[in-house]
């Protein structure tokens, strides 16, 4: 089942203004993505961990998610050190492990973890409906925000529809295997989901028209910077500037 695991708004970060969180997460992610030195990246990773603690996320789910995306990183560790050209560190059979390859893999590992942990702490802890309205306030075009909100609204409905169809085909003795029958069954199932969503969209639009839709979704969330936001703002700015300065010091 699709669900939002990380929401728990008794924690500090989760009570900050969502606009502030989005802007900071974006700036921080890009800053970290452009760093090259391991010292800066390790500092960034520690800062991300701190944010995670302040966000009070569910650690069991977090561990699962971290495992999932670090398994991708592991693949890079298997390929990059032997495919990079550079100074040789070790020889394993026909392969040469290069210094540059190892450094680059370490860089990617630290970067991706630092960015993802900050993303989980700041963004994944926010309900998508709130993110949508906050994005609108941040001058993202209304149409794309509407698509985001509608997709979020119907993703759960359509998942239930999908579960229903899966139950139906299982009841009829369907066992997925590597054969044409399986691919055909899944293709028809998807086709059915698409047709039903188009019909549903038609009804949704009619309902929206009935309620006087004029190209705007109104939000009950009042976005206003509160005291905690004003306290946090200088810390956030300092974090990014501090990291940039650290990167610059390490470079020279």
């Amino acid at each position: 089942m699709i669900s939002e695991f990380f929401i728990n708004d008794t924690f500090f970060i989760q009570r900050l203004d969502p606009r502030l969180r989005i802007v900071f997460a974006t700036a921080y992610s890009f800053a970290v993505a452009l760093f090259a030195h391991l010292q800066t990246l390790i500092t960034a990773l520690l800062i991300s961990c701190m944010m995670l603690v302040m966000a009070g996320v569910n650690f069991r789910v977090l561990a699962k998610r971290l495992l999932a995306f670090n398994s991708l990183v592991l693949l890079l560790w298997l390929v990059l050190p032997i495919t990079f050209s550079g100074e040789a560190l070790y020889y394993i059979g026909p392969f040469t492990i290069t210094r540059e390859g190892v450094l680059f893999s370490a860089q990617i590992t630290l970067k991706s973890n630092a960015i993802m942990l900050a993303f989980i702490a700041l963004i994944a802890t926010t309900p998508v409906s709130v993110i949508g309205h906050a994005l609108e306030k941040l001058f993202i075009p209304q149409k794309i925000v509407h698509i985001l909100l509608l997709t979020y609204r119907y993703v759960f409905v359509i998942e239930q529809e999908y579960q229903r169809l899966i139950r139906a085909i299982k009841t009829r003795g369907f066992i997925p295997k590597t054969n044409i029958h399986t691919y055909k069954t899944y293709a028809y199932l998807m086709g059915m989901i698409f047709i039903r969503s188009v019909d549903r969209a038609q009804r949704v639009y009619q309902a929206m028209i009935c309620r006087g839709f004029e190209g705007k979704f109104h939000s009950m969330d009042l976005f206003a910077l509160k005291r905690q936001d004003y306290i946090c703002l200088p810390f956030m700015t300092t974090t990014i500037i501090g990291l940039e300065v650290l990167e610059w010091i390490v470079t020279i």
Binding site: H146, L149, T151, V204
Partner: peptide
Amino acid sequence: HIAQVGVLSASFFVASLI
């Protein structure tokens, strides 16, 4: 068309979970 893109986008999202 916004509703159609939104709901279809949701269905592609679900279909890509298969």
